[in-house]
Amino acid sequence: MNLNDRQRKLLFAGLVVVLAAIGVYLTVAAPEHDHDKADARPSATVTAGPSAPASPPPGIHSTVDPKNFDIYRLLPFSQQDFATAADLAQRFVAAYGTYRYDEDPTAYIGRMSGLVTDDLRGQLEAGASAPGIQDQRRKEQVVAQGGASLDQVRTIENNSIIFLVTGKQQLTRNGTASSDSKQYAVTVSRDGGSLKVYAFAPADAGQAGDTG
């Protein structure tokens, strides 16, 4: 295309205007575009994980004040865990001493299933289902109502607490009422994320210590 001098000057001037406009656009719009992209990126959120229980216990570094002494700062179990363990030991002994001659052994074991470890449940189930025990109870029409009293703490280990618990029974045998009591050593231990009765035995027979 042949252009005269005047047309070439007009074309050049038009190109200068266009290029200037593009330069202004890039200078002003580009930062806004980058800013928009930065705003669109998801921001990283730091979420604190669950705090782990203090182990070993937090201890006491200040001077001991007898009027404000928190013994649980020296123990491997919190006050809440200690109370839970004591409740488990007491409820277990009461449930262990409660049964009827005409009751299915599975119902008897079911009352203790949430209180004990799986291993202890298996042992209790085997004992309760033994033919000799069931035959004797049916023959004498035994009905037993159990209760329990917490006597003392025998041992505190890193993963277990052994309580001395007295089991008390109100018995009816062949229509005759009587009462009985026996003291047990009951071990409550950590079982996964909870506390369960791990073992028990007559108090005078002793108990294994820590289960961990």
Score class of each variant (00 low, 15 high):
94 A>G: 10
187 T>I: 02
126 A>L: 06
91 R>K: 15
139 K>S: 15
141 Q>R: 14
154 R>N: 15
60 I>M: 02
158 N>V: 14
93 V>W: 05
167 G>F: 01
194 S>C: 05
154 R>C: 05
106 T>A: 15
188 V>L: 03
58 P>T: 00
140 E>N: 13
93 V>E: 09
158 N>E: 15
118 D>S: 08
148 A>G: 02
166 T>Y: 01
176 T>Q: 11
157 E>Q: 13
97 G>H: 11
76 P>M: 13
69 F>A: 04
89 A>I: 10
68 N>L: 07
110 G>T: 00
192 G>D: 08
176 T>D: 02
173 R>N: 00
75 L>Y: 10
70 D>G: 05
76 P>Q: 13
78 S>A: 12
181 S>E: 04
137 R>Q: 09
88 L>Q: 10
102 D>N: 11
175 G>W: 06
145 Q>T: 13
135 D>T: 11
58 P>W: 01
149 S>I: 14
171 L>W: 04
88 L>G: 09
146 G>F: 09
139 K>Y: 12
81 D>N: 14
106 T>N: 12
90 Q>T: 12
84 T>F: 10
93 V>I: 15
59 G>C: 08
91 R>G: 10
187 T>M: 05
100 R>S: 07
105 P>C: 05
69 F>L: 12
112 M>R: 06
84 T>S: 14
161 I>P: 08
164 L>K: 10
125 E>S: 11
97 G>K: 01
87 D>C: 02
101 Y>Q: 00
177 A>I: 01
94 A>S: 14
91 R>H: 12
139 K>D: 12
78 S>D: 09
135 D>L: 09
153 V>G: 09
111 R>T: 05
175 G>R: 00
132 G>A: 14
109 I>A: 11
183 Q>P: 06
78 S>I: 10
193 G>V: 09
85 A>M: 15
54 A>P: 07
159 N>E: 14
95 A>C: 04
164 L>V: 12
96 Y>E: 13
154 R>F: 12
91 R>F: 03
149 S>A: 15
143 V>A: 11
112 M>F: 06
133 I>F: 14
183 Q>G: 03
175 G>Y: 04
69 F>Y: 15
85 A>W: 11
105 P>S: 00
181 S>I: 02
164 L>H: 07
164 L>I: 13
100 R>N: 08
102 D>F: 06
88 L>R: 13
102 D>R: 04
59 G>F: 07
190 R>T: 11
157 E>G: 15
176 T>E: 06
179 S>N: 06
191 D>S: 15
109 I>C: 01
161 I>R: 08
159 N>M: 11
166 T>F: 05
58 P>E: 08
146 G>I: 05
138 R>H: 09
113 S>Y: 03
